[in-house]
Write a protein that binds this DNA or RNA. Structure first.
Length: 329
DNA sequence: AAGCGCAACAACCGCCGCTCA
DNA sequence: ATGAGCGGCGGTTGTTGCGCT
């Protein structure tokens, strides 16, 4: 319908980029920008490349302020935490790591972090089975695998560097919410049917109530962006009304309404069901020896054999009270 | 020195949602 | 309202380099 056709694949070069190609692309974009049309770009500069390939090359390699390799421990932890929280949404994860690209993080995860974590977790399980590493009360911070612990939140809790970012609120009933910027907040909530408004101070907020027909779960979302704080709070009114709070420092805190004595309803039953292997993968990292994941047929069952209640779990988790983060209810 | 296996990274592929004509 | 084009994203594959035997 009047649009330029996508690149002619027969006349398009593939494979590694030559320095001259890089230079051409970089020089052009720095001078003229992308012009809002990646497909037309290679023809303009005389590159025999697909527009998508140009875009990828620019975003992942040529763009200014790109960092390659040399991931710090802090970045490792953040990636792990976010992966556990939101799964393989690499672009969102990348948005929280300045200078990193989604492709870089994805590669890093697939080639190193995943193995690193699996290694640690397996080791952990082996120790536990031997009784060397108790998971119940009294486990010292040094025994917690560093992969599930965050030190990048010193501003939130400078006393305790061992702050797990994503405690086990399974994905199963709450699709994880994550906020990278104001636009994301808006998009997410508008997609869910919310209404966006700005007040006279320029503070933006959304209030919405959305009914999900599949499981009669009522989601009450409230998002706000004020000065340097973004946060979104999501309360899921299931039988035990577990809540989740996510602030700009990536902490996602399960908050038990009214009290903190029990695990969310999912764990009251000590059983949860999922058919998503990725989620199970993430859960397996987190639960490690606490749960066993058995797959049979088209569904999997997670059995939390140790009956670890929320009180016990919270002994491993600190609830930050500073930095403007607050519980909605 | 050659062959092999593995790790790391770059790039491609295909799908999906949004936009535009 | 509809369908094609485009951009973005995640998964996968290909290539290269390194270490070990």
């Amino acid at each position: 319908m009047g649009r330029a056709p996508c690149c002619d694949k027969a006349n398009v070069k593939k494979g590694p980029w030559a320095p001259e190609e890089d230079a051409k692309l970089k020089a052009y974009i720095e001078e003229y920008g992308t012009g809002g049309n990646w497909i037309a770009l290679p023809q303009k500069i005389g590159l025999k490349r697909c527009g998508k390939s140009c875009r990828l090359r620019w975003l992942n390699y040529l763009r200014p302020n790109i960092k390659h390799g040399g991931f710090s421990e802090e970045e490792d932890r953040l990636i792990c935490s976010l992966y556990v929280s939101i799964g393989s949404r690499w672009s969102i994860i990348a948005s929280q790591l300045p200078g990193r690209t989604d492709n870089d993080i994805k590669n890093y995860w697939n080639t190193r972090l995943k193995k690193k974590l699996l290694g640690k977790q397996r080791k952990d399980q082996i120790y536990r089975r031997k009784g060397d590493l108790p998971m119940k009360k009294g486990r010292s911070p040094s025994e917690i695998p560093s992969s599930i612990v965050v030190s990048g939140n010193e501003n939130i809790n400078s006393q305790d560097p061992y702050l797990p970012v994503m405690p086990p609120v399974p994905y199963l009933y709450q699709e994880p919410t994550f906020v990278s910027d104001h636009t994301s907040i808006r998009k997410l909530l508008i997609n869910l049917g919310g209404k966006f408004s700005s007040d006279y101070n320029g503070n933006q907020s959304i209030n919405m109530v959305s009914q999900f027909p599949t499981d009669n779960t009522l989601i009450d979302l409230q998002a706000s962006s004020q000065d340097d704080h973004n946060f979104i709070a999501c309360s899921t009114h299931v039988s035990s009304s577990s809540s989740m709070l996510l602030n700009s420092q990536y902490n996602i805190l399960p908050i038990q309404e009214g009290q903190s004595g029990n695990f969310p309803s999912v764990f009251d039953q000590e059983l949860c069901y999922s058919t998503n292997p990725q989620k199970l993968d993430a859960l397996e990292f987190f639960y490690g020896g606490m749960c066993e994941i058995n797959t049979s047929g088209s569904s999997s069952v997670i059995t939390c054999g140790d009956s670890m209640d929320w009180g016990e779990m919270s002994s491993l988790i600190n609830t930050p009270t500073t930095n403007g983060a607050s519980c909605l209810r």
